[in-house]
Design a binder for these strands. Structure first.
Lengths: 178, 178
DNA sequence: TAATCTGTTCAAGAATAATTGAACCTAAGG
DNA sequence: CCTTAGGTTCAATTATTCTTGAACAGATTA
C-alpha cells in the first residue's frame, strides 16, 4: 500500500488561529486544559476529517498531549472518529451540535460534582442531627435548609439550559467505554 | 478601651467542616481558589458576624490569604461588612441570597469573558472576509455562523438562569470600588 | 510623637496542573 | 516471526496558580 508522503503541514491560517484562541479561552472557562481547546478549535475549523499527526503538526504540541486531549474530547462527545477506507490512521471531526457538547459536559464534568454534593449534604444533615447541641441546632438547620434550596435551584437549571439549546432529554447514568 | 481577650478559637464543629468542604469544592468548580471557598463556608455557617482574626484562627490559613479571599468575596458581593460599635475590627457576614451570589459571579467572572469573546468574534469575521481565499471562504463563513449562533444561545441563557433564581435584572456595567 | 492595633500588599516558596517524550502496546504487512 | 505504523501511557519536567509571612500603611490612642 502507498506510503503517505509528508502531510499538509502548511501554517494555520489566521482566522483559524483566532478560532483556536477562542476555544482555548472557552476550555479554560470550563476548567479544561488549553490543549483540549486547541485540538477542538482545530477540528472545528477543518473542512475535512483530520488525523492525529496533522493535529501534532498544526498545533505544535506533543503526541502525548494530542492523545490525551482527544481522549477527553471523545469522552465528552465533542469529537467523533471518522474511519476512512484505505487508511489505518484515525480521522477526527468536531461535533458541531451545541446540544451534544453541553450534554457531554453536563454528564462528565458537572454530573459527578452534583452527585458528590448531594452525598455531602446528607452527611451534613446527619452531623447536625447527631452532634450539634440543642441551642445551636435550630440555626444549623436553617443554614442546611438554605443549602438544600440552593441545590434544588441548581437541579432545575440544568434541564432548562439543555432545553434552550434545543436538547430534549437529560443525562441518565453514562455509558461509553474508553 | 477594653482589650479583647483571646478569641473564640475552639475547633470548628464537624458540620461546619462539612459545609466548608462543600464550598471549597464549589469554589473550585467555578474556578476560585480553595481559600475563598473556605472563608465563605465559614461565614456561611456562622451565627454572628465574624472577624478577620477569627477566620485566620478557625481556618488556620494565613492573614494574607484571608485578606485576599475577603477582597474577592466582597467584590463578588458574597460577603458584607458589618460595622459593630465599639470595635475597630471589621466583622463579616455571608450573603445568603443565591441571586446576589449568581449576579456577582456573572458580573465579575463571566461578564468579562463574554465581552472579550464577542470582540474576538468580530476579529475573526474580519479575518475571514479579508484573508480567506474564495474557494474556502464559504466554509469559513459557515463555521463563523455556527460560532455566532452559539454566542447567541449563551446570551439567552444567563438572564434565564437569573430568572430561575428569583432575580429580576441583569448586569449593567459594574460599579463598586475596592 | 510614639506605640499599637488592623488590615493590605507582594515577592518568594509551595502546591497543583499540564505538557513532554521515550518506552510501550497492538495490529497489519512482509 | 520480525518490522513498522499508529497510538497510548506515564514518570519527569515545566508552567501555572495559591499561599505564606514579613514589610508596610492608615488610623487610633496614650
Amino acid at each position: 500500500m502507498k506510503k503517505m508522503g509528508p502531510e499538509n503541514i502548511k501554517a494555520m491560517p489566521s482566522w483559524e488561529a483566532g478560532v483556536v484562541e477562542l476555544f482555548v479561552r472557552g476550555a479554560n472557562l470550563v476548567g479544561l486544559p488549553r490543549s483540549v481547546g486547541e485540538i477542538y478549535g482545530c477540528l472545528f475549523c477543518a473542512q475535512e476529517p483530520v488525523t492525529f499527526d496533522t493535529l501534532v503538526a498544526r498545533l505544535k504540541i506533543s503526541r502525548g498531549s494530542v492523545s490525551q486531549g482527544l481522549k477527553v474530547l471523545r469522552q465528552l462527545g465533542a469529537v467523533k472518529v471518522h474511519y476512512i477506507v484505505g487508511s489505518r490512521k484515525d480521522h477526527y471531526i468536531a461535533e458541531l451540535s451545541m446540544q451534544e457538547l453541553v450534554q457531554g459536559f453536563a454528564r462528565d464534568q458537572l454530573g459527578p460534582h452534583l452527585e458528590s454534593g448531594s452525598a455531602r449534604l446528607k452527611k451534613i444533615e446527619a452531623l447536625i442531627e447527631s452532634e450539634v447541641d440543642p441551642e445551636k441546632r435550630s440555626h444549623a438547620e436553617q443554614r442546611f435548609n438554605t443549602l438544600r434550596s440552593w441545590q434544588q435551584s441548581g437541579q432545575k437549571i440544568l434541564p432548562l439550559v439543555l432545553a434552550v439549546l434545543g436538547g430534549r432529554k437529560f443525562f441518565s447514568k453514562r455509558a461509553q467505554k474508553d
